[in-house]
Design a protein around this nucleic acid. Structure first.
Lengths: 340, 340
DNA sequence: CCCTATTTGAGGCACGTGCATCAAATCAAG
DNA sequence: CTTGATTTGATGCACGTGCCTCAAATAGGG
């Protein structure tokens, strides 16, 4: 009934509690034979360390850092807001979260920042930055020094399992599926707008989008990606250009996490009949745009879930326990004006 | 930096730790004036009880019961599976979960079961049952006796804030929105299939469905609800009847949480061109149906999230702490074959 | 004022684990 | 077998809170 304690372990293994402690916490100077005995007992009793008690004994507090790009994007603000919420939600677990801003285009400075983190101040860090060799190395070195580190939203694909974000290829495919099904047209072209095609996320989304469109909606043709570089004037110019010169336009896919600029530009142009518009990420702006029909549909990753998942993962790494993968899978949400 | 402890509280309030304890745990025999002093200090220091330490001291373990209908539905099996998962996930928090089966059509026996739960064995219970006066009363009495109790999935609307499930009206509206947008037809009728229209959930979904269809897709007409009563032969009869006699059929909305029977019946009939089919809940069956096109779209509530949310809420009530509402809002998920 | 009832304080043990110290036992090598 | 090094045991305190007992202080009533 009751969970076994270190005392029970000691008895079962025929050693003292001190030795159990030595084994559990990987201290030096224990014979292999004794280690084996203890491990056998752990297995036999199904012993699981009571982390609450352990943290109490260590007066352990977690401090996690979210390293986010400097940027005025609404989506990032949502993330920050949810980090504050998470801090409250996890306060009972002695978790604190800080946000640090990094320059996403300067891998060197990011690596330097990561290198500056010390395990006795920082338990873990979630990094939202495009993948680069420098950052990847810095992450590895962090982990070696005992600081938990996971890529966050922006995918560092080579990092293996510990990553928090959505499958961007599936997200792109979902956008294509909705755009295709929503469109009443027999044929036509689809405009694809991105902030930049440099990022891996954009590329993945585009790949998924094209694959699904080609497979399920061959009558629709996706145009080459337009890049706004986050610049309103440039956006206006290139978007207007397509709208004016392509009479077959039946769909618009806004791939970037900031739909604001393209949507605003589009709403200034004369309304095109029956064009389906799909964007990304839930923000105050996209919610409003869904309501008044400027957007037909939004593909989103739940910001709160992203943040909490990151915290749980960092905590798990820090505790050397395992997370239960089910909960941590970030779903691709589809938002209409009926399910906000 | 460090969080204040009861010791700090005692010093700040100018009383002993024993008195602080008396106030914190609401024991008798403390003058109002002293209570006020302590509460003032709590506020001033921003004291928050360290639940981990408290639970350790009490060697508190949580035991939560999920009272679910007896039923062979796939969706229920998913729920049960996720309860097992949650038990693992919350094991570190000393949480155990048991599933008890109740007869959803016998409010009296449900009430009797609830009355049999004692606070020293059961910390809380999540109840999935249609609303009825008996059950509502039983829930109130449970809460009085110190057993946390919340309605689960099936809505007990009069219960106020503590309820875990989705907004069924919005779910129905979302189904209508997707069905309408997916349909390429200019006009036609929509078949609506339910297991029974007795349950509040069905009624809410139907209301939301009709409202959205009328508002956004006036060219589509929803037919009266067909009730299968979970019986395959009956389902076959009534569905076939509509399919054969209604040449205008352009959409099918399967409202019940078990889409299996209607979909199976439909797939036996000659394929109707351009009919859009929408169902509810993610199960192995609906996933397969999405993949091979028997279903175009599924509206789902995340089973894992439902269960974990229930556990967190029960735990919070048990701890007399507050939950952070953000995380607990159950979203209406939209599943296509691209975002499984 | 005294007497009694109420309220408060002081102190200690418990929960399960981490961590430190010191002594005792065991081992390996000469 | 002796010597010194390595490995293990015994013990105790700490973390923050709950809960218990007993004594001390305070209040209210006559």
């Amino acid at each position: 009934m009751m969970r076994p304690t270190t005392k029970d372990l000691a008895k079962a293994a025929g050693v003292s509690r001190a030795t159990v402690d030595r084994v559990l916490n990987g201290r030096e100077g224990v014979k292999q034979k004794t280690v084996d005995k203890v491990n056998a007992a752990i297995k036999e009793l199904g012993f699981v360390r009571n982390i609450q008690a352990a943290n109490l004994a260590k007066s352990k507090r977690y401090r996690f850092v979210f390293a986010l790009p400097r940027s005025g994007e609404e989506f990032l603000e949502e993330i920050v807001r949810h980090i504050r919420d998470a801090e409250e939600a996890f306060a009972l677990d002695q978790v604190r979260c800080d946000v640090e801003h990094i320059d996403e285009n300067d891998p060197h400075s990011i690596a330097a920042f990561l290198a500056s983190l010390s395990p006795d101040v920082t338990s873990g860090v979630a990094i939202m930055a495009p993948e680069s060799p420098q950052v990847r190395d810095a992450i590895f070195r962090l982990q070696e020094r005992g600081v938990a580190a996971i890529p966050f939203i922006s995918d560092q694909t080579t990092m293996g399992t510990d990553w928090v974000g959505i499958d961007n290829r599936a997200a792109g495919a979902t956008a294509a599926a909705l755009l295709g099904r929503f469109s009443k047209s027999d044929s036509g072209s689809v405009m694809v707008i991105a902030e930049s095609m440099q990022s891996r996320d954009s590329q993945e989304r585009r790949l998924g989008f094209d694959a699904e469109l080609g497979k399920s909606f061959p009558q629709l043709t996706a145009l080459p990606s337009l890049e706004t570089y986050g610049d309103e004037e440039r956006a206006e110019e290139i978007i207007t250009n397509v709208v004016n010169n392509d009479p077959d336009l039946v769909g618009i896919y806004i791939m970037s996490s900031e739909a604001k600029i393209p949507v605003t530009v589009l709403s200034k142009l004369p309304k095109i009949k029956d064009v389906v518009t799909v964007g990304h990420e839930r923000t105050p702006f996209t919610e409003a745009a869904l309501h008044d029909g400027r957007l037909d549909c939004v593909i989103a990753q739940n910001a709160g879930h992203l943040v909490r998942s990151a915290v749980r993962k960092l905590k798990a790494i820090s505790d050397k326990s395992t997370t239960h993968s089910q909960q941590e899978h970030i779903r691709i949400e589809i938002l209409l004006n009926t399910n906000l």
